[in-house]
């Protein structure tokens, strides 16, 4: 049972989304992946204007409509009902991916199965023979968007690290991830491997290192 005295360890999903949102600058054009990344929009600090892109053809995407107001022809890439904010625009798929591939979108936040210390991302297939392969727009996003952020649990449900030396799953893109927001830490991908930017409450560097399979550095100030 959780009590006020129980020591808190790590961030929950809402806190991971909130921490990520702090790094979304005013004026950014942003594409949010399905799942926890979608939550980032609700935590962008007041005073920052951010424009959301959804790859099925909408810039200026707003939150889900109130119940009963859903329009089946106004949806996001996860095929959920959304709204269009004042200043929004609609466009076809080739233009939408020109925005992505042409490096016009500033930030994309995605989920992950594995991230390597070189910044390789695997998030579309486990490579199992009976799986139905499905990639959607993930490969285009990581190849084209200027900055790729990943939100993920630090380990899988069975405790296997997701931050690894090299990915065993099929890649979505090579050397594409800039920063990882896990339930345990914020971590940059650098030429020297993973580097801790911030530890979550109650998480020590050693605790994090035991749960990270790739090369992990304590922080950018270190090395004195």
């Amino acid at each position: 049972m959780t009590t006020e005295n129980a020591q808190k360890l790590g961030w929950n999903r809402e806190e991971m989304a909130r921490r990520t949102a702090l790094d979304i600058a005013d004026g950014s054009y942003v594409n949010l992946g399905i799942g926890i990344p979608e939550k980032v929009a609700q935590y962008v600090p007041v005073g920052r204007e951010v424009i959301y892109h959804t790859e099925n053809g909408l810039l200026g995407m707003g939150p889900a409509p109130i119940a009963g107001q859903e329009d089946p022809e106004l949806i996001n890439a996860g095929k959920k009902a959304v709204t269009a904010l004042p200043g929004a625009s609609f466009f076809h798929h080739a233009d939408s991916f020109a925005m992505i591939r042409g490096q016009h979108i500033d930030i994309c936040v995605l989920g992950a199965m594995q991230i390597s210390e070189q910044g390789d991302l695997a998030n579309w297939s486990t490579g199992e023979p009976d799986a139905i392969p499905a990639v959607g727009g993930a490969m285009d996003l990581v190849a084209g968007v200027k900055t790729i952020y990943v939100i993920t649990q630090h380990c899988t449900k069975d405790g296997t690290p997701k931050l690894v030396e090299s990915c065993s799953y099929p890649l979505t893109g090579r050397a594409v991830v800039s920063r990882v927001y896990s339930d345990l830490a914020v971590i940059d991908v650098t030429p020297e491997g993973f580097q801790v930017v911030e530890l979550a409450p109650g998480v020590s560097f050693d605790y994090l290192r035991q749960r990270t399979a790739g090369k992990l550095q304590a922080g950018r100030q270190k090395g004195s």
Binding site: E55, A94, S96, I100, V135, G136, G137, M139, D140
Partner: peptide
Amino acid sequence: KLDLVPQGTLAERIR
């Protein structure tokens, strides 16, 4: 049969 194509590549191939 399935020919799996990334979404943006599919759009650009069609364009």
